[in-house]
Amino acid sequence: MEGSSSSSSSSSSSAIFYDFLDRMRDPASLDLVRSIKRDHPLWAGATDEEVNCAMEGLEKYVMTKLFSRTFASSPEDAKIDCETSHKIHLLQTFLKPEHLDIPVVLRNEASWLVNPPQLHSNLKFIQLYRRQTKLVSEAAYYFTNLVSAKTFIFELNAKSISIDEIEFEKSMQDARLTNKATEKGATHALEEMTASQGQTDPGSSAASHYKGRSGSSNYPYVDKEAGDLTVGDVERLLSAYKEVVTKYTSLCGC
């Protein structure tokens, strides 16, 4: 009974929260937010532009604080993220522009290499928490297209594109087998590298592994300590991190 009561309370709280979100997405809620700000001495006499900037800042501040609780916070979201990324990875091995009836002049096969991590969670986060007054015009157009593309990919089958059903299923199966072989090879290589390092110092081993023929490191941060880094290194490290994550998810298909 106690567990049932707890579950009921949790469901009720969740329903109240999403009801609150629905109300706050209503354009009429802007009057409420503006009235709160204009009554505050810090925004007394503020222009509409200043209030709008304050609201943007408030949204970013609040959602940054709540990010870990609101982004990809459910097992279902994580599952859809993984399935979407995995399917994109499989489709990349054989899907061509002609299968989608894309005119030659509009083809850009470089886009076939794109597999954004946590695509579903990112789109859901924007849908739930971005101010609806900002999802209009051009922004709404691009966002709607992205949501439609994700849905199309997630539900895609042989009937969705110009390809024989048997050929489609065979291509998907071949892609799955190739993916499993790649994962197995990567795992084996990692195990061998770990075993070969043995008791050696991982720092010096990694540094020597990444030395170029000239004797200088091809990876400027591999032999650095935390104290050696500067504020200017953060952007470069973040960019490198994102690249690694993208390549890893493409390799593992998840």
Rank of each mutant, 00 (worst) to 15 (best):
Y61I: 10
Y61K: 13
V62H: 05
M63E: 08
M63A: 05
K65I: 11
K65D: 11
L66R: 10
L66V: 05
S68T: 12
R69K: 13
T70G: 01
T70S: 09
F71G: 07
F71V: 03
S73M: 07
S73V: 06
S74C: 04
P75R: 09
E76C: 03
D77N: 14
D77G: 12
D77P: 02
A78Y: 01
K79T: 04
C82Q: 09
C82R: 12
E83K: 06
T84V: 13
T84P: 01
T84E: 05
S85P: 03
S85N: 12
S85C: 14
H86R: 09
K87W: 02
T93N: 08
T93C: 01
K96C: 06
K96S: 13
K96H: 11
E98D: 11
E98Q: 14
L100A: 02
I102C: 10
I102V: 15
V104T: 06
V104R: 11
V104N: 03
V105W: 02
V105G: 00
R107F: 02
N108A: 05
N108F: 03
E109Q: 09
E109C: 04
S111Y: 09
S111T: 13
W112V: 03
L113E: 04
N115F: 07
P116Y: 04
P116D: 05
P116R: 10
P117Y: 07
Q118A: 14
H120L: 06
H120K: 07
L123G: 02
F125K: 00
F125V: 03
F125H: 12
I126P: 00
Q127A: 08
Q127C: 07
L128W: 07
L128G: 00
Y129T: 03
R130G: 06
R131E: 08
R131K: 13
R131G: 05
Q132M: 11
Q132W: 05
T133L: 08
T133Y: 01
K134F: 10
K134D: 12
K134C: 09
L135V: 11
L135Y: 00
V136T: 12
A139T: 09
A140Y: 04
A140G: 04
Y141S: 07
Y141A: 06
Y141P: 00
Y142M: 03
T144S: 12
V147Y: 00
S148G: 02
S148I: 02
S148N: 09
A149H: 00
F152S: 02
F152D: 05
I153V: 15
F154I: 03
N157P: 06
N157M: 08
A158K: 01
K159M: 06
K159S: 15
K159D: 13
S160G: 05
D164Y: 07
D164M: 05
I166A: 12
I166L: 10
I166S: 10
E167R: 13
E167P: 01
E167N: 08
E167I: 06
E169C: 07
E169K: 09
K170T: 14
M172D: 03
Q173M: 12
Q173S: 15
Q173E: 15
R176H: 07
R176I: 14
L177K: 14
L177F: 09
T178Q: 11
T178D: 13
N179W: 04
N179F: 00
N179Y: 04
K180S: 15
A181S: 13
A181C: 10
T182Y: 02
E183Q: 15
E183L: 14
K184A: 15
